[in-house]
Design a protein around this nucleic acid. Structure first.
Lengths: 213, 213
DNA sequence: TTCAAAACATGAGTAATCCTCACATTTGCG
DNA sequence: CGCAAATGTGAGGATTACTCATGTTTTGAA
């Protein structure tokens, strides 16, 4: 049995866990490792995070750490995966029942707020994100996720504006989505007051584009 | 004598060149170092760039490299500074003589195109940028630059729309600017055709917001 | 229960890499 | 020239991601 079935074993692919924890004990230990990593990233940034420190804080040996995470960036990636999964659920939930322009405005506004709050509450997300930017493999995975998220928007737009060229809708949705991520990151990089203004401005801008008028 | 004399010995401040080249010979050598670094970043990314390789490719010793660059990220920063200076000149030039909404549309569109072309032609810029994202000090400097650039837009907007609250104009300009950087980076991350569409969509979206109607 | 195999745990050691420093060489200039 | 400042050098110190040989715990089938 292969360790993992990745479509392309070449390149700088994301290494998968050398071993997934199958026992209760090790599952708990892996949780502690991720928690320790998350805390350290929040404190110092993912670049400054030291594997030895993660192990120490999790109360495990360095060897145990590498038993479940093949390398440093796989820890960052594991954390990122949790948030993307969480986001995905949140997005599809918020957009599922949109029936008209007014509903879109409502849902979209709430969605952006949730993202903003999430970034404010979990500074580790921002560091995880900047970690993915510097890495080609992670970057392309992040883009794929973003595209998948934008698809939820596309589905809504196709329903609301069946007259418009689907390719154009795809482009708009993808762009708006990426802009949103950028806006929220920006908003959490400045003081709270300005951040709030920026998020509101983004909402206006995005909705004007989405509802078409 | 302390190892380093930084204004604020705390934090992770940007270290300044240990020594500025004052002789012709060393100026040329520093140029070679930057060129080598730029080439290596373009090939492999700034993270994979090795100081030893930079020195070797520039035809200097590792010691000479550290004579002018106190650490690795200062090289990335030096390259980034060149591009920001270049950009700044380009921006103020393009926006200086804008007198009406039509002129703004024209100038803004050209500006975005120039940025897009610059990113396409010099992949090193993107890597330099992602290097700055992972570093708190670099990130805040980058934000300051972006704010400065947005000021050129603000100046134009204040002229064209004196009726609008200046704070709102600042927010809009800053946001539009950051969105633009994000859009161009995104556009250079996908295939050319989609990239072109994204840039055009961004222009529409931004101009709608800027001219107010 | 038994016990062998699989899963898990350990941490000293290896390799890679950033950066320093003591010393050598070159340049500017009276 | 002669001296000081600027510049050049590369072996080696320090840090750190990651390995591996070895020991311990859990599982599950007989």
């Amino acid at each position: 049995m292969d360790e993992k079935v990745t479509a392309k074993p070449d390149q700088a692919a994301i290494a998968s866990p050398r071993r997934s924890p199958s026992q209760q004990r090790s599952r708990e230990r892996v949780e502690r490792m991720l928690a320790a990593a998350s805390a350290l990233i929040a404190e110092q940034g993912s670049d400054a995070m030291r594997m030895g420190e993660v192990a120490e804080r999790a109360g495990v040996s360095i060897g145990s750490l590498y038993q479940f995470f093949p390398d440093k960036r796989s820890i960052v990636w594991a954390l990122a995966e949790r948030y993307t999964a969480e986001s995905q659920a949140c997005i599809s939930g918020a957009l599922k029942d949109v029936r008209d322009a007014e509903g879109l405005k409502q849902a979209f506004s709430e969605l952006v707020d949730i993202y903003y709050q999430l970034f404010l509450a979990e500074p580790v997300i921002r560091d995880v994100w900047s970690g993915t930017q510097a890495d080609k493999a992670l970057r392309s995975l992040e883009l794929a996720d973003s595209r998948a998220n934008a698809e939820f928007l596309v589905a809504v737009l196709k329903r609301l504006r069946p007259d418009v060229d689907p390719v154009e809708l795809e482009t708009t949705a993808f762009l708006v989505w990426q802009m949103g991520e950028a806006a929220v990151r920006l908003a959490t990089s400045v003081d709270r007051e300005e951040g709030d203004r920026l998020v509101e401005a983004y909402k206006r801008m995005a909705l004007r584009e989405l509802v078409g008028e």
